[in-house]
Amino acid sequence: MTIRQANSYNLVADIGGTNTRIALAQGADVMPATVKRYRNVDFTGLESVIRQYCDDQGHVDPHAACVAVAGPVRDGRAAMTNLDWTIDTDTLARASRSEKVAILNDLQAQGHALGHIAPAHLRQVLTGTSAGPDATKLVIGVGTGFNAAPVFETPRGRIVTASESGHANLPIRTDLELRLCQYVSNAHGFPAVEDVLSGRGLERVYAFLGQEAGEPKEILAQDIMTALADGADARAAEAARIFVRILGTVAGNLSLIQLPFGGVYLAGGVARAFGPYLTQFGFGDAFRDKGRFAGFMSNFPVTIIEDDYAALTGCACQLEALDRQG
């Protein structure tokens, strides 16, 4: 077991509903050999999993620690809908024995990672007008849930603001989308963006199409994507088309709100899975379908983040920025 010098590393973690990934970082660089994944069900809380990791890394004593969580963060405390853990700065400081700690929403962490992701892990979907390094950017996360975070460059450093965009109303452009909204409302009481633009949302779109056809059937999102790749299920292709068109509409709406001339970045497992199909199913057309502002939408390039460690990198970058600030 490697014995690591105290206060020589920072600890970074990405806490999901099922698993927690933890790593050590030096400056903005995550050390790949130190990345470990733990099942949340095996631990009673954040403190126990971090202490287990520190022991596994030779009783490492980090200088600072930052975690990214899939949920809203307020006043140093995070709330997660699928995990009954106490996640706050006091717990993080005690567990990691760190002098400096931070808690980020997972999309904030992705935003802090921009500029530190290898080009090989970026897939361009739409080109756009080039912009300066200080231009605003926008990260949109599509995975277990949906969210977005704008990234602002300021004289005092980068600011990534949190939101809960996935819980805004679904946009409605067609009669089919209206019926889809009504279908979601009947099941959940409110047609939120996340109810369609997520892994579970794709399953709902597929089930909705079955109801429309009078042939009810429900399958898992991964099976829908498999059927799409195989070309064996026309309903899977139609569900994917609806998903992509709504994603384009929502991403376009968010872009008009934030004006990300520095680019729109799609993150998350579902976004990565749809990467090969966005052009095929009309993402760009839906993204730019803004009436007299259709031409203006070409200002915003769209790229998929294919780096599974981006949230960890973002946590490392945030700690590096905090160190610079003293």
Rank of each mutant, 00 (worst) to 15 (best):
V60H: 09
D61A: 15
D61W: 15
D61C: 13
P62E: 11
P62D: 03
P62V: 10
A64L: 05
A64V: 11
A64S: 13
A64W: 05
A65S: 07
C66E: 03
C66A: 07
V67H: 00
V67M: 03
V67E: 01
V67R: 08
V67A: 01
A68T: 01
V69I: 00
V69C: 01
A70G: 13
A70C: 15
A70R: 07
A70H: 08
A70S: 15
G71E: 05
G71M: 03
V73H: 05
V73Q: 00
R74I: 07
D75G: 02
D75E: 11
D75P: 03
G76P: 06
R77G: 06
A78K: 01
A79K: 12
A79C: 11
M80N: 05
N82D: 15
L83S: 03
T86A: 11
T86P: 10
T86W: 06
T86N: 06
I87G: 04
I87P: 04
I87F: 02
D88P: 03
T89L: 08
D90V: 06
D90N: 08
T91Q: 08
T91C: 09
T91V: 09
T91G: 08
A93G: 10
A93H: 12
A93Y: 11
A93Q: 13
A95L: 03
A95E: 09
A95M: 14
A95W: 05
S96D: 04
S96P: 06
R97W: 13
S98V: 05
E99W: 14
E99Q: 14
K100T: 12
K100R: 15
K100F: 15
K100G: 12
K100P: 12
V101L: 01
V101Y: 00
A102H: 04
I103G: 09
L104W: 02
L104H: 00
L104Q: 07
L104C: 03
D106R: 02
D106S: 08
D106A: 06
L107P: 12
L107G: 14
L107H: 15
A109I: 02
A109G: 02
Q110T: 15
